[in-house]
């Protein structure tokens, strides 16, 4: 397979003990390990933890880079969700009257909370799909546990949501719900939703690394999910004349749950009667199940992500 200009020359003697060894034997003799092999879960988690500063820095860098060319700069972090909420209110609140069964001073915070909380999951999934395929250059240049990518993109969306929460607090207070003890539940809801989102992002990241077409398909899936989750209407009110189990199934879907729990925490008149049975347990179950499952699913293909 190769040309050798010094055919006549005898091979110079290697150290006798190594000369006859096959590559694999040579490697094991000197304790060499397979390059790029997937580490076991505990070691993988440890490496991920070692890279926590990178995960953080990468997410806030992405966030900062987003609006760096705009004149208003980081002001858009707050202005974008505000405009979003305004558009949804105009379409669903004023034109379609989706706020049936709720007074206006409940419906507007209800809608804005729903939009922001769902956007958190939606954009986590959308950036998750492209976490590997959109950062292939990074994957092919540097070593780090690849789970750092979907994780830090979810963290970026969490930071984005925290900006949106400023708007949300203003809206909620503006419609008469003042901070009280139930606001202490907000971090708990955010933590559960973040776990769920990260797991989901890792699942779609692996799928999207193998099948980039998912990035095209995902917006439709997500839009269907949004309309089924009661972002802009109350599920129990709209399904009042249907069998109870349909409403239950829709309300137990994780997106609807996290929205409802956040509304319950924030809005005074949105009481526990609007939550499905076992809301916290199901919300916690989703978070743990999807986070663990997503992580293991992502980890299983760790060594293959560079192939693209």
């Amino acid at each position: 397979m190769s040309e050798t200009p010094h055919d006549g020359r005898a091979p110079r003697v290697l150290p006798s003990s190594d000369a006859g060894l096959a590559p694999a034997e040579l490697a094991s003799k000197y304790g060499l390990s397979v390059s790029g092999a997937r580490p076991p879960v505990p070691a993988y988690l440890r490496r991920l933890w070692d890279r926590r500063h990178f995960v953080l820095a990468f997410s806030s860098a992405k966030l900062a880079a987003q609006y760096s060319q705009a004149r208003l700069g980081q002001l858009w972090q707050v202005a974008t969700p505000l405009l979003n909420a305004a558009v949804y209110f105009m379409v669903f609140g004023l034109i379609l009257g989706a706020g049936r069964g709720m007074p206006k001073d409940v419906y507007i915070p209800f809608l804005v909370t729903g939009v922001f909380v769902f956007t958190f999951t939606q954009s986590s999934v959308m950036s998750g799909v492209r976490a590997i395929s959109g950062n292939l250059g990074l994957v092919r240049a540097l070593h780090f546990p690849r789970a750092a990518l979907p994780l830090s993109l979810c963290l970026q969306q969490l930071q984005q949501l925290l900006y949106s929460m400023i708007v949300l607090f203003l809206v909620v207070v503006g419609f008469g719900s003042y901070p009280d003890l139930s606001w202490a539940l907000i971090p708990a809801v955010l933590a559960l939703q973040f776990c769920f989102n990260s797991g989901l992002a890792m699942i779609v990241a692996r799928a999207g690394a193998h099948t980039p077409d998912l990035a095209q398909l995902m917006p439709f899936v997500l839009r269907t999910w949004m309309y089924a989750s009661g972002v802009m209407f109350s599920i129990p009110v709209f399904l009042a004349d249907k069998p109870q189990w349909i409403a239950n199934v829709l309300q137990w879907n994780p997106a609807a749950l996290y929205m409802d729990l956040m509304r319950f925490a924030l809005i005074e008149e949105y009481g526990a009667e609007n939550l499905p049975d076992h809301a916290w347990a199901v919300a916690g179950g989703w978070a743990v199940f999807v986070a663990l499952g997503g992580f293991l699913f992502f980890w299983q293909a760790e060594e293959k992500y560079g192939r693209g």
Binding site: L26, S33, S35, R307
Partner: peptide
């Protein structure tokens, strides 16, 4: 491939 960033289709790379 040596750096372990690109998985080989066949064969192995061992490193220290």
């Amino acid at each position: 491939a040596i750096a372990g960033l690109l998985p080989p289709e066949r064969g192995r790379v061992y490193t220290d």
